[in-house]
Design a protein around this nucleic acid. Structure first.
Lengths: 123, 123
DNA sequence: CCAATAGTTCAATAATCATTGAACATAAGG
DNA sequence: CCTTATGTTCAATGATTATTGAACTATTGG
């Protein structure tokens, strides 16, 4: 198992791959959740998405999101912390990520997105 | 053959379907070309895209673009004239289409897009 | 060392997708 | 009417895709 998964450089990020990645409802939900977290800590663990499906399926989608350059994974012990590659994407495709997030937010209900109203996790 | 193909209503347009449609290089090229034509006549015939592949394959992609609500087809004699559903998309997902077009323009070379510098068709 | 936790990888499945050429439908023009 | 031009539909193909559960890896904590 590689310590830190491979990510494309900023310049290697390709538009069709990004759009394809965002076209899957589960991946869109992941990105949306990460975008909401940006206001707070900007990072989430894989486990925080368990509501979206089985672990192995999520790992598959995480890999896709990494490969296309949408998010970055940082390994810390037995956890993986992931965040949006906001700056890279904004430089590469200005306005795109925001437009997608806003569009998703407009359809939050239809897309069954978790509305993160200043998420306070029970502990 | 149906006279005028079915199109979804504005409200029926769904984000994942739109993104998936735009994630295919050929369809992205079609949309890009239609967007450039907006400055001029706003409509193009199917045949104007012959550079992008075989006729039957293009018909397949046209159908996808229609079904997801990205474009509209108007039948006129033996021709089909198509245009972007710009207004519907801008109302439904503000800023999304523009962001995608601009992103595509930035990568025009990489995406092998036809750069329409005030296209003057030979006749 | 052992057990529990967090994720990934693998193999198998069913479903969808893009592409092709041939056949078809429709309308225009001689 | 016959031919030509413009697109669509159909059937077949090979390639991806999402999903699942089981096996595996690695780290933490007792």
């Amino acid at each position: 198992m590689s310590r830190t998964p491979l990510h494309p450089t900023r310049e290697q990020i390709e538009l069709p791959m990004v759009l394809d990645c965002l076209s899957d409802p589960i991946r869109l939900a992941i990105v949306y959740q990460l975008a909401q977290q940006e206001r707070v800590s900007s990072e989430l663990r894989c486990g925080d998405f368990s509501g979206l499906g089985a672990k192995s399926n999520l790992a598959y989608h995480f890999a896709k999101l990494r490969e296309c350059g949408l998010m970055q994974t940082r390994v810390a012990g037995t956890n993986r912390f992931m965040r949006l590659r906001r700056e890279d994407l904004d430089v590469r495709f200005p306005g795109l990520l925001d437009a997608v997030i806003k569009s998703a937010a407009k359809d939050a209900e239809r897309l069954q997105l978790v509305v993160g109203c200043d998420v306070v996790e029970a502990d």
